[in-house]
Design a binder for these strands. Structure first.
Length: 824
RNA sequence: GGGCGAGUGGCGAAACGGCAGACGCGUCAGCUUUAGGAGCUGGUGCUCGAAAGAGCGUGAGGGUUCGAGUCCCUCCUCGCCCACCA
């Protein structure tokens, strides 16, 4: 069969027999071109060519083992978009790699006894093969794999650079701990109080960990200037960073210790209503200032808060609890002595871990005060009148009452007045805080980048000297799944000497969060084998920043925020020359299966291989793009795949049949062709793949019923338009029709608006907005002529009977609407 | 509880404020075929009607407009994100 296809190539079929034999056989065609493209290096991208460079990046996958339909959805449409840009005259870098570190590999090792490195290699080999079957135009020479020492040594290098700059630090903080994975998690990896990976309830633990100081860039990360990113992603990031303006103030603790409680508030104007204070149970002052009589009760409460799962503790449904610690602070504005409580509704990790409670004007404080019979005082009134009793807290703006010298002011004005007054008295002043916390980057896991730090009893944490990088992850370890990270048990790795004093020391056994790996991989693609720096800057200058980035919305906060942070940090280290790593971002929606996320544990992962086998990769690519709007994702249902396959077969048949070399042009066909060029070009720029495919289907329907030179040219044009979508079949047909070189190296067709413009239009005739008739008119018909046509319509005449014409609306080439009034 | 997004045929969907349902799936009828399949031609929102045609139709209700799936308000349902953030 295959031989026959080769034999027949280029020739037009004449007999019925030949026609039947020379059918579309995707399997043979696709294999043939996979080999040819690989050997000719068709997808290799030079750093310099006669065309302008364009860096088109799609988020690299985790090597989970299988390219599933979700991957196809993420990669096939961007591949088409990248191919389109190539035909439009760009030198497009479309690289691929693997985000190869991570906990799954380690779990596979524990479950199956296979080393994570072996498991990962096996998976990558399979997935590369699947990428190739997809027909993705990937330059594999530029592949990046994050678990190789030549990659992660630069991860370590960056860590040390950030450490020098104070952007990486070791600190004690209440952190998220997953008891099952036995590791800490970043805030961003806790989903509904559960571990992102294994769904186990996360608890808070006080631990010493490594952090990247992302909060230093909070304000800059809120700016999206010059970025063409979807509104949705910008909003998600903005909310995640959570900027709040207010004041940070301090009230002294009663007694001689000189202690004070610092707190943040967005409502300094309500300070005269602060009738008590609340500390987080973990607040460092608790142990110090608790009254001896209350100590036992307080300790019990602190202990129970510590053991509570994060989700339970922060549940809004739960009734508030707390304990009076028997200490007092002074509200320096009212001069009053106010009680200090601890309660777990105050979070140690936000602000200063302490609040002034204003029950009259805060819901949570109101609920707490009501339960524990604490004073609720009105200090803001909507109308300026004082009320003796509040049934509910009043959170709105208004006139300040019972507020000493600032009474009678409006709250917006009072905010500033109180903050200024506090500053004058030396107890604080205006302040801004963020919801965003520093990025916790250390993990107690094996399969990741070792943190290049040595702990010396005498010198403390000491950076590994740059010339000793990489700190290689030891291969021989035992995977038991218990007893913490396997690294802690590898004596040859752990025991070392201090680079500073030469004394005995221990290596840090934590590894870096894999989101660190992926925060800079786009710089590595330009020259992944470069061994003098994390990036070959000469090559990088030709490509970066990324002009188009695509990936799933689920990374809107995690990866996309870390990636932006890393670019800014590297910029401040003098290592990159731009503020933002990716100028334009577009996301695809999720592919779900019967309304649920596909996952191996649910056993509902759909593999594309069977469809590729049956219909070919071109069909599956096209189907992925035809299903619906790319941003919306889809519930996987392959029932429509026959339709796109039939379309490809029809295109194939179009190119097989005889055509008339002579004959006259057909204006209708020419118009359809040029309109389709316009539509597909437009849709590819806006990622509206589904309507682009629909337009090509319409075009092929027109061509099927046409003949002559217009048809022949139309078929050639259709192949070019279809090339980014169905690269294999179009390449085969291009060759058979005697095309020179690869179809993928051809120029994208252009269209003539004059040819695309319709000659005739259908004018809709309306009476009072209701459609009464339709007439055909020459395009560009003027209003008077159109109105005349309308008045000639019998249906319009009938509908106008007994009505007086008030006015007429004319929309060129579209409609005439006659507005009437009942004549009396 | 807050924020964002979405509700259109049996299904996936399309529609610069201007012919609702392009394109495709499914389905029905016809042609073709020994048969199955594939292919081709045509129909297919709902209701009434033999037909011509008429009426009704974009989650519900109101509004703006000559004209609303599209803009505004209220509500309902679903999805995503955040969720005691001071």
């Amino acid at each position: 069969m295959e031989g026959l296809i080769y034999f027949l190539k280029g020739g037009r079929m004449t007999s019925e027999l030949d026609k039947r034999i020379d059918r579309y056989t995707p399997a043979a065609i696709e294999e043939k071109w996979r080999e040819r493209w690989a050997s000719s290096g068709l997808h290799n991208t030079p750093d310099v060519s006669d065309k302008p460079n364009f860096y088109f990046l799609t988020m690299f996958p985790y090597p989970s083992g299988e390219i599933h339909v979700g991957h196809w959805y993420a990669f096939a449409p961007p591949d088409a978009a990248a191919r389109f840009l190539r035909m439009r005259g760009h030198n497009v870098l479309f690289p691929m790699g693997f985000d190869a570190f991570g906990i799954n590999a380690e779990n596979a090792a524990i479950d199956r006894g296979m080393h994570p490195a072996v498991w990962t290699e096996k998976n990558m080999a399979h997935m590369r093969e699947q990428f190739n079957r997809m027909g993705a135009a990937i330059d594999w020479r530029r592949e990046v794999v994050t678990c190789y020492p030549e990659y992660y040594r630069w991860n370590q290098w960056m860590f040390l650079k950030l450490f020098e700059k104070g952007l990486a630090y070791r600190g004690e903080a209440p952190v998220n701990w997953c008891p099952r994975d036995e590791t800490v998690l970043a805030n961003e990896q806790v989903i509904n109080g559960r571990c992102e990976r294994c769904d186990t309830l996360v608890v808070k633990r006080q631990m010493t960990q490594w952090f990247y100081r992302i909060t230093q860039y909070a304000d800059e990360l809120l700016k999206f200037e010059g970025l063409d990113w979807p509104e949705r992603v910008r909003v998600l990031q903005t909310n995640w960073i959570g900027r709040s303006e207010g004041a940070e103030l301090a009230f002294p603790v009663e007694g001689n210790s000189g202690d004070e409680i610092r707190f943040f508030t967005t409502r300094p104007d309500t300070i005269y209503g602060a009738t008590f204070m609340v500390l987080a149970p973990e607040h460092p002052l608790v142990a110090k200032i608790t009254a001896p009589a209350k100590r036992a009760e307080v300790e019990r409460y602190v202990e129970s808060a510590r053991n509570m799962a994060e989700i339970e503790r922060t549940s809004t449904e739960r009734e508030k609890t707390g304990v009076d610690i028997g200490a007092f602070a002074r509200n320096v504005f009212t001069g009053e002595r106010i009680p200090i409580w601890i309660a777990d509704y105050v979070l140690a990790t936000y602000g200063t871990g302490a609040i002034m409670a204003v029950p009259g004007h805060d819901e949570r404080d109101f609920a707490f005060a009501t339960k524990y019979r604490l004073e609720i005082r009105e200090v803001v009134s909507p109308d300026g009148k004082e009320h003796d009793h509040l049934d509910a807290p009043y959170m709105g703006e208004g006139i300040m009452v019972r507020s000493g010298p600032v009474s009678g002011r409006r709250t917006d004005d009072g905010k500033k007045a109180v903050a200024d007054e506090a500053k004058k008295r030396g107890i604080g002043g205006p302040s801004v805080i963020y919801r965003l916390r520093d990025w916790l980057i250390s993990r107690q896991r094996y399969w990741g980048t070792p943190i290049p730090i040595v702990h010396c009893e005498r010198c403390g944490p000491v950076p590994v000297p740059y010339e000793q990088l990489p700190v290689v992850l030891p291969r021989d370890v035992e995977f038991t799944g218990r007893g913490g990270s396997p690294l802690t048990h590898v004596a040859s790795f752990v025991n070392t000497t201090c680079p500073k004093c030469g004394g005995p020391a221990r290596r840090d056994t934590d590894t870096l969060d894999t989101f660190v790996d992926s925060s800079w991989y786009m710089y590595r693609y330009v020259d992944p084998k470069y061994d003098k720096a994390f990036m070959n800057k000469d090559a990088g200058k030709k490509w970066l920043p990324v002009q188009q980035y695509t990936g799933g919305v689920e990374h809107a906060i995690l990866h996309l925020l870390y990636m932006r942070f890393m670019a800014k940090a590297l910029r401040d280290l003098g290592e990159v020359w731009f503020d933002e790593p990716a100028l334009r971002f577009r996301y695809q929606g999720n592919i779900v299966f019967r309304g649920r996320k596909m996952s191996k544990s649910r056993g509902n992962v759909e593999t594309p291989d069977a469809y590729v086998e049956k219909y070919g990769a071109d069909t599956l690519r096209l189907f992925m793009m035809f299903m619906g709007p790319w941003v919306d994702g889809a519930d996987w249902n392959a029932s429509g795949i026959e339709g796109v396959h039939r379309f490809l077969r029809r295109v194939w048949e179009l190119t097989q049949s005889d055509t008339e070399a002579s004959g006259s042009r057909d204006a209708d066909v020419d118009r359809a062709v040029h309109r389709t060029i316009a539509k597909v070009t437009d849709d590819l720029q806006t990622y509206s793949f589904n309507t682009a495919v629909a337009a090509m289907m319409e075009m092929s329907n027109v061509l099927q019923h046409a003949s002559g030179p217009s048809r022949d040219e139309g078929v050639a044009t259709l192949l070019l338009l279809l090339a980014p979508f169905a690269p294999y079949m179009t390449e085969e047909l291009w060759e058979r029709r005697g095309g020179r070189g690869s179809i993928h190296r051809q120029s994208w067709p252009t269209y003539d608006p004059k040819i695309a413009a319709p000659k005739e239009v259908t004018l809709v005739l309306q009476i009072d907005g209701k459609v009464r008739d339709r007439v055909t008119a020459p395009a560009g018909i003027a209003q008077p002529a159109a109105e005349k046509l309308a008045m000639e319509s019998p249906k319009v005449k009938a509908a106008l009977d007994g009505r007086r014409i008030e006015r007429t609306i004319f929309v060129p080439d579209r409609l005439v609407n006659i507005v009437t009034r009942q004549s009396s």
